[in-house]
């Protein structure tokens, strides 16, 4: 494997966003790119990352390899990179280590680190293509704010999508709270758009603790997409450049 990222910052932000949810992960490398799928310890949330080969320049992977990496170790090394550094990931065919090289575009500094790999026996889940009942696209910062506000009142949030809009509501010991968003197009600032595509109304309840955790990815993309259907996990997607993505799946809470 040899994969060069223009900005080390991208990988730094991705790892920073998921490191509190999942600890040891396989980075599956093949000629289409670098993928990661892992569940949190409680098996309630699942992270799925795809960094497409096109996100790297150049990208070369001659043989499929799984790099088992402890994310806290990876984060320690990524913190040694300046945000603007060019990052090159390298690994042999049957690697014991992954090699990270940081190059400054402005100076002649070159830093090199090796991280020891782990053998991780991780089950890989098959997530079918799903036609969701509701797909909501909104500013990532807005979603983060709603989750942070509501967790002050309650552990859970009900997300209800109807043709009227999408309502995030919660109830707790001190009282209730709700935020409703309607579809909204801002010609001047399209990054503030809220788009709700609905094939049928849907209402599901989720643990806010996980949603707040997912929102650590807000720095990766201006927009977040929420996909809901009855009886399937919520998909929270942050789209990255070149069709790469960071997706979180969260199993709902159900009544008795």
């Amino acid at each position: 494997l040899e994969a060069r990222l223009e900005q080390a910052n991208l990988l730094k932000k991705v790892v920073d966003a998921i490191k509190d949810l999942v600890q040891d992960c396989n980075f599956d490398c093949n000629d289409s790119g670098i993928a990661l799928q892992a569940m949190d310890n409680s098996h309630v949330a699942l992270v799925s990352m795809m960094l497409k080969a096109e996100s790297f320049s150049p990208f070369r992977c001659d043989r499929n390899i799984a790099l088992g990496i402890n994310l806290s170790s990876l984060m320690k090394v990524l913190r040694c990179a300046q945000n603007e550094d060019i990052l090159t990931l390298k690994a042999d065919d049957a690697p014991d280590v992954v090699n990270l090289v940081f190059e400054s575009s402005e100076s002649d500094r070159l830093s090199e680190y090796d991280i020891k790999l782990m053998d991780i026996d991780q089950e890989h889940l098959g997530i079918p293509e799903t036609e969701y009942s509701a797909t909501i696209s909104m500013p990532a910062a807005e979603f983060q704010r709603i989750c942070r506000d509501l967790i002050a009142l309650s552990e859970s949030v009900a997300i209800e999508a109807t043709k009227e809009g999408v309502k995030f509501s919660c109830s707790g010991d001190i009282g209730n709270g709700a935020v409703t968003l309607r579809s909204h197009t801002n010609v001047e600032k399209p990054e503030l758009n809220v788009d709700i595509a609905l094939s049928e109304p849907v209402a599901l309840t989720f643990s806010l603790k996980y949603l707040v955790n997912f929102c650590k990815a807000s720095g990766l993309s201006g927009t977040v997409k929420l996909c809901l259907s009855s009886e399937v996990p919520l998909l929270v997607e942050y789209t990255l450049a070149s069709n790469s993505y960071l997706r979180f799946y969260l199993a709902p809470k159900i009544g008795d």
């Binding site: 309630v44 098959g126 199993a251 159900i254």
Partner: peptide, 14 residues
């Protein structure tokens, strides 16, 4: 009180 389901209920291991 709603109870929490796991991801495994929905998605099969490959």
């Amino acid at each position: 009180q709603a109870s929490q389901i796991t991801i495994l209920v929905y998605y099969r291991a490959q």
